[in-house]
Computed example of a mutant assay.
Amino acid sequence: MKQPLAIILAGGLATRMGGGDKGLLPLGEGTLLSHVIDRIAPQVAGLALNANGDPARFAALGLPVLPDPVGGFVGPLAGVLAGLDWAAGQGAETVVSVAADTPFFPCDLVPRLMMAAQGMQVPLALAATPDGRQPTFGLWPVALRDDLRAALQDGLRKVVLWTDQHDARTAQFDAQGDPFFNVNTPEDLARAQAILEGAA
């Protein structure tokens, strides 16, 4: 399997943070998004950002900014589809998705997802912890992008409903703490800062 591309999912509305772009909130010496980029970039062949609205606000990142190809803020699967459409244009076979608000995900996320999907004709795998699957962290095949588009247009929103239809596998992560801890509230952001400083 060729090295995948990555799509960072930043298309949500961030209602619990008062709106705006969660990924641009400060964390340490950077932003939530800069920490996500630093983690995923070494693991993939290239990356893009899924976000809606004016792409100019992300210009400093130097990444392609891809809006949802399906209107109405239908959730993370729309961002995955944006990544798959972009990857198809790059000649890639797979895309890995990561969330823009999850700064401490595993540094071996991509190899573990690829290992889980080994031998599958259409490689599809989600990250999982003992608490369950992590639907915004997955390996997605370009070959299924039209199937996903049709499912979204038919009203499908739940990631695991679609992945179960295609016999997705899971890559299990049992690290100490919560490797997929994500920032939804100002309290979460303070906790992330504490984790970064080694105080949590």
Rank of each mutant, 00 (worst) to 15 (best):
L152G: 08
D147A: 14
L81F: 06
E197M: 14
T129W: 00
P186L: 01
I40L: 01
A48R: 07
A56N: 11
D131Y: 12
W140V: 08
L126G: 06
V95F: 03
A99H: 14
G23P: 00
G46T: 05
N182F: 08
A125E: 00
G71F: 15
L66M: 09
G198E: 01
A82H: 00
G177D: 07
A56H: 07
T15A: 12
V110P: 08
N52K: 01
G18L: 04
L47C: 02
L24Q: 07
N50R: 03
L49V: 03
L63T: 05
I7N: 10
E187Q: 13
E187M: 11
L66H: 10
I8E: 03
A199E: 15
N182R: 15
A125L: 03
K2D: 14
T185L: 01
G198T: 02
L148W: 04
A87V: 08
A82W: 01
I195N: 09
G30P: 09
L47V: 04
D146G: 13
A78F: 03
Q3Y: 09
V98T: 07
I37L: 10
L77S: 12
A143L: 09
N184H: 14
K22S: 13
P69S: 09
A14F: 06
G71N: 15
Q43S: 01
L61Q: 05
A10K: 01
Q118N: 15
M114Y: 03
L156P: 05
M1W: 08
D174C: 08
P4C: 13
S34C: 10
L27R: 05
G89D: 13
L33E: 01
V36Q: 10
G62Y: 04
D21C: 11
G23F: 00
T102R: 11
D178P: 08
D21N: 11
G46I: 06
A143F: 04
G53F: 07
G46A: 09
L152N: 10
V142C: 07
P106R: 11
I8Q: 02
P186A: 04
A150W: 06
R57P: 01
V44S: 03
D101N: 05
G11L: 06
F104D: 09
V80G: 06
D54C: 00
V95D: 00
L156Q: 11
P130M: 06
D188G: 07
L63V: 01
Q134P: 00
V183M: 10
G62W: 02
E187K: 11
A100H: 11
D154P: 09
V95Y: 00
A92S: 13
N52R: 03
Q43H: 04
A192Q: 13
D108F: 00
V65T: 02
A175V: 09
L33C: 00
A78P: 05
E197V: 13
G11S: 11
A82D: 06
A125S: 04
R39Y: 09
A45T: 13
P135F: 04
T15F: 10
W140K: 08
A14W: 07
